[in-house]
């Protein structure tokens, strides 16, 4: 389990993380989301002991990572695919890391096989693609079969097969009762992989909840309704205390339960064509929450600026 308690990190005048507190529990995949420059990587570096917090602290399985007898057994990390001397081979890189904990060559060969790098194990890393670099980073993280995984953008540069492998591996880890904390800008991927999300913006934690609750809350628990006469039914619904927002097709109803809406339709002798709870996607929920937190805003799309 990862616990981040009141973590603050300043780089000179810049506040990268501002009194952030959150937890990534065992048995779950926790997605760590936020716009560029929000403080995700800094928080992960603090968890791994690479950055010394200005205030607060981060623990892995109850202790600072440096206090564990075997840090590699507690947590494996992929922080950047470019964390390898380019002149070294993949096998030499992993052997050097494994040696720190007395882990032998056989395990190195195992993780090379697991990550699909066995055929390029003796090639220099400088010839690796981004995806191969990611795989090597994941192999490093898995070397000691750790209780906790911390991965910063693990699917960045991976092919679809690799993306699926990371997803399955993360789910498998969580199913074994282990903790996975991963950051990604691919919302659809996080939605498929994560049980929980922690969202950070401008260094502050904006949300720390389950994916299901987060998306449901973003959709305001609205119910999509279509009947044989939406105009007449909207008057009835408003009379019953509902708040309406017109959807692209039909009505979007907030403030009434689905059963009440159905009863009203039956009483009004209207045909009910649709009655469904709507949920926002993780991306919609995330965009809604972080709209004001984006530090580096994109310009208008090419279509919008075209003459």
């Amino acid at each position: 389990m990862i616990e981040v308690i009141d973590l603050t990190k300043h780089y000179g005048d810049k506040i990268a993380v501002d009194h952030a507190s959150f937890a990534a529990p065992d048995g779950m995949v926790t997605g760590f989301l936020g716009p560029n420059g929000a403080g995700k990587s800094t928080s992960m570096r603090a968890i791994m002991g690479l950055d010394r917090p200005t205030g607060g602290h981060a623990t892995v399985n109850g202790k600072h990572i440096s206090q564990h007898a075997a840090p590699m057994r507690e947590v494996g990390a992929l922080l950047d695919a470019k964390s390898v001397a380019p002149g070294r081979t993949a096998r030499a890189h992993l052997r050097a890391l494994a040696a720190t904990h007395g882990i032998g060559k056989r395990r190195v060969d195992e993780v090379l096989g697991m990550t699909g790098l066995d055929k390029v194990a003796d090639k220099r890393v400088k010839g690796f693609s981004l995806g191969m670099g990611q795989r090597l980073g994941i192999a490093s993280a898995l070397l000691a079969d750790p209780q906790t995984l911390v991965m910063d953008e693990p699917v960045n540069g991976l092919d679809p097969d690799g993306v699926r492998w990371v997803r399955d591996m993360s789910r498998h880890f969580a199913a074994e009762g282990r903790c996975v904390l991963l950051s990604s800008h691919l919302m659809s991927e996080v939605e498929l992989t994560a049980d929980r999300v922690v969202i950070i913006g401008r260094g502050r934690i904006l949300a720390d909840t389950s994916v299901a609750d987060f998306t449901a809350e973003a959709a305001n628990n609205a119910i999509a309704v279509r009947t044989s006469d939406d105009v007449a039914f909207s008057t009835l619904l408003q009379g019953a205390g509902a708040i309406l927002a017109s959807g692209s097709a039909g009505l979007s109803v907030v403030g009434l339960e689905a059963a009440d809406i159905a009863r009203l339709a039956v009483r009004a002798n209207l045909d009910l064509h649709e009655l469904t709870h709507t949920a926002a996607t993780l991306e919609e929920a995330y965009m809604k929450l972080t709209a004001d937190q984006v530090e580096y805003k994109s310009g208008p799309s090419l279509e919008a600026v075209a003459p």
């Binding site: 001397a85 720190t100 007395g102 882990i103 079969d145």
Partner: peptide, 21 residues
């Protein structure tokens, strides 16, 4: 897995790692 559970961070291990590097 038995051997992995015996893994420990040690000066000797890090020295070996640095010599390998």
């Amino acid at each position: 897995a038995t051997t992995l559970t015996e893994a420990r961070l040690s000066y000797g291990g890090v020295l070996k790692s640095e010599l390998l590097k």
